[in-house]
Amino acid sequence: MTTEKAIVVKNLSRHFGDFKAVDDISFEVHRGEIFGFLGPNGAGKSTTIRMLNGLLLPTSGEGRVGGFDIIRENARIKNHIGYMSQRFSLYEDLTAEENLTFFGGVYGLDPARLTGRITEVLILVGLEDRRHDLTRTLPLGLKQRLALASAIIHEPSILFLDEATSGVDPISRRNFWDLIYAMAQEGRTILVTTHYMEEAEFCDRLVLIYQGRIIAQGTPSELKGEVKETILALYPGNLDGALDLIKKLPQVAEAAVFGDGLHIATTRPEETEPAIQETLTAHHIACGRIERVRPSLEDAFISLVQRAEGKEAVSYQQSAIS
């Protein structure tokens, strides 16, 4: 590897016809970093990853992955990266070991090294006792770990994980992140995309992508620092009813469900608090105590998206809050 930077992207765009799936993005990823891509559905996360993997050519812009040019050297990149695609790409009718053997072969590992590596990665992901099980019979959490194992069979220095943990339970997700940390510790660079805010918190640095554009980047705490509004948290009796009412208040910049309560962003907290209490009481909804909280990454995300949109209604569905 020739540079200190694992990934360098400059003004990268990818259009599909008139549609700009990825629109002029630039960022850098250091070696050994866990780098997050956070954004709603259709933001352009997968499209970006596919360009970095050499699967898709950019419409314009440039990029380097592991020191290789993503346009001119896209075939050479492939030996140095591992990729877990958003769609499950293992073969269900092969056993765990057969899948690993297959990917090892495809990466051109010689048989002696392959045998050793299979055992290593199976132990790493905790599947050595299920190596002869058909992949079909594994629970989703284990399938995903197997997919990770097959993506690192050739010891890549850079790993792309595209929504690797979508659909699995929180405990499996936690275990999976332990693996990601372990690999980062070994010096591998890891780029993850996610919907889960809680996962974004685990990243060293991240970019927020929205409609093909990067709207903010930095460490999780830097991003939270971007929030100019004060965040109010409350736990009213009727969540949906309260949300509708509060959204109508002129003082409120944005309101959204957060866990089992509401988070409300406002630049004028002193006026907002009584206004909320007033309108809820008027509609016979129990208000409860209103607290000022430190903005979460999610608050940051909502606030930053709003700013990017120039105060249009944001309809980011918080489907993945845990």
């Binding site: 050499g54 075939a75 492939k78 499950f88 790409s89 990917f103 495809v106």
Partner: peptide
């Protein structure tokens, strides 16, 4: 159809 092509194409194959 089942999405495994995506994974294959990211390998040196």
């Amino acid at each position: 159809e089942r999405g495994s092509m995506e994974g294959l194409m990211a390998t040196p194959l």
